[in-house]
Amino acid sequence: MSSPKSAPRAEVTDGRSQRWNGHKAERRDRILNAAITAIREAGVDVGVKEIAERANVPRSVVYRLFGDRDDLDEQVRTRIISELMTRLTPVLEPEGTVGAAVTRAVDTYIGWIVTNPHLHQFLASGSTKKSVGGSRSVSNARTAVAVQTTQLLAAAMARADGADDIAEPLAFALVGMVDSAVNRWLSRGMRPVSAEALSHSLQRWILHTITVAMADIGVEVRAQTPVTELFGSATEPR
């Protein structure tokens, strides 16, 4: 026959477990914030010791909560990407003219990089493990942007009664071009051109590429083309 006191004892145990889980979550959050602050200020080579000191926890706690440095780094990347996508996602929705939409997206991205060069370098640095494909978080973010771009291009092509089978490769080509150009530019200390010049060039290349792709299906697109003329109601997910 079970004791009636067993239920309260279980409740006490559950309460302690919840408090401990909350304590661990708070520490993890503090460590991640400390890591991002340290990278933003000191660069990508910041050590676990400095991160632990900034978070006001022993270094052993960092490894206990994250397992190893790669686990910590990947979760830091996830948080950095979340910050970047909060800025970038809204401006990927087309408004005004095609040229203005491209300018807004590229300027927002380059602007974030100029403000947070070390964070972007950290994203580009990948994992210390020799895994194929690098950081999963970074790869997923690139894919998310490319998929959203694909939907926009496919909507414009479908509205023009053209084949939209090139929308996906075109979108991934555009994202890859921007990513490669920016990473190389950062690796050279934001040289040989200024941020403004790089942004302007990327905008022109993107517009020219889209113009050629749309011309192939008989649609004329210019920087002054209103996005409502190009997309209409077809920008809604299909």
Rank of each mutant, 00 (worst) to 15 (best):
S201L: 06
G162N: 03
D68Y: 08
V221W: 04
K130W: 12
S3A: 09
S125M: 07
G99S: 06
S127T: 15
S180L: 12
R16A: 09
N140A: 14
A55Y: 06
A154K: 01
G43P: 06
D164I: 01
F122E: 09
D45A: 14
Q18M: 10
E74G: 13
L202I: 07
D179I: 04
L119Y: 07
S127Q: 04
K5G: 03
A173H: 14
E74I: 15
L152S: 07
T115P: 05
V76D: 06
E168V: 04
V138M: 08
R204C: 01
I110K: 01
I39M: 04
H23L: 10
Q224N: 10
D68T: 06
E74H: 14
R184A: 10
G15F: 06
N56G: 10
L92E: 04
L207G: 03
V102I: 15
S6Q: 12
S135G: 08
N56Q: 11
R159H: 03
S139V: 10
L202S: 00
R142M: 09
A171R: 00
I51P: 02
T228F: 00
N56W: 02
R87P: 02
A124W: 11
R59Y: 05
A215Q: 15
E220K: 08
A156L: 03
V212G: 07
R54I: 11
L88N: 09
A215H: 12
D107V: 05
G232P: 10
Q224L: 03
E26Y: 05
K5N: 09
Q148A: 05
S2N: 09
A154M: 02
S187C: 01
A55S: 08
M177Y: 08
A156K: 00
A155Q: 01
D73A: 15
S82R: 15
V147C: 06
T108V: 10
L32V: 13
L152D: 00
T150S: 11
A42P: 03
V114A: 13
A158S: 11
G189Y: 00
E196Q: 12
R59I: 07
T235I: 11
N183Q: 15
G218L: 07
L186H: 13
I210P: 00
